[in-house]
Design a protein around this nucleic acid. Structure first.
Lengths: 167, 167
DNA sequence: GACCTAGAGTTGACGCGACAACTCTCCCGG
DNA sequence: CCGGGAGAGTTGTCGCGTCAACTCTAGGTC
């Protein structure tokens, strides 16, 4: 809408520095947590997300589409991820329907164990590396910004509820 | 240090929600910017980082190790990225040394054009999607958190200067 | 009943990111 | 001279993430 006059100007050096520091902080934090997950639980962040989402379904089998919606992942991404995780023995695609199609996704026992353990360990890591590092003021400001950013960036896409996800 | 007693407890539901919202905001923002970069400039975020870093070197050829240090990327990652970008015609590995080894990395003309254009366009996108969305208070709090997080997570790794990078 | 379109899911291809293994040169000590 | 690191760079492999193309079935229309 309304193209304003300052279009052609990029960012000032200090704005770039702000942006770079911010991106760097994010990257270091997620890298640290991802490494922790790999080291302590031997699973990836993507695997964690799927495990926890299925775990929260408490035994109910989810469809690929539901996972896709819940995680806000592309359906093909979910499918690929499930293929890998099926190979690892974390999930099972149960076939149903007379002809044998339409997959429902279920955790295996090993998947359940991994989910439970990872939630504990990863939660602790998040506390140590993120939550504990925030002053109350920082926490509330960052929470507010996050919510507003999600609202701004996510509403356009799906104009309805904001379901849970697990990252 | 000193393991405190609350080890075995993971996160409360509201802490998880905070964490998830925060991760989600990050993901949506970076996804949006990455898409913008792809759409408007036909380059990826990784390509952008390399282009800008080389551009800032203002004609001086960088070594792989320098790029790796500057970007805080694994050396092998730099090498792979350069291979792809060489194929696209953005960079050139100039050989020197009598026997022909030790690669110096230089931008091609096309690389220079792409860098310049992308810095402008991407900068604008960052302004629109991020900087403009911050109240002054949010900006200062987030800046402070970022710096402190980088200090905490990055100092252990390299106990020296905090060079520039381009993300 | 034949078409055919919409939706669900899978597959393939490709770039990104991490890790380990390998090459090659330089340099140092014997 | 030769053997053995150390440092720089490359290669291979694999998982993640995205896009496009494909399959298959259900359901609707004629």
């Amino acid at each position: 809408m309304l193209g304003d006059m300052t279009e052609a100007r990029s960012l000032d050096p200090e704005e770039w520095e702000f942006w770079n520091t911010w991106m760097r902080a994010q990257r270091l934090l997620t890298r640290e947590l991802e490494r922790g997950l790999q080291r302590d639980c031997d699973i990836s962040k993507a695997e964690f997300s799927v495990l926890v989402t299925l775990w929260q379904a408490a035994g109910r089998e989810l469809r690929v589409g539901e996972l896709s919606e819940s995680l806000d992942w592309d359906k093909s991404r979910v499918s690929h991820q499930l293929t890998r995780m099926e190979k690892r023995g974390f999930v099972k695609r149960s076939q149903y329907g007379a002809d044998g199609r339409r997959a429902g996704i279920a955790l295996t026992d090993e998947g359940r164990r991994a989910a439970q353990n990872a939630a504990l360990v990863h939660g602790g890591n998040i506390r140590r590396h993120f939550l504990d590092s925030l002053t109350p003021e920082q926490a509330s400001v960052i929470r507010a910004w996050s919510e507003q950013a999600v609202g701004r960036l996510d509403e356009p896409r799906r104009g309805r509820n904001a379901g849970d996800d697990a990252n």
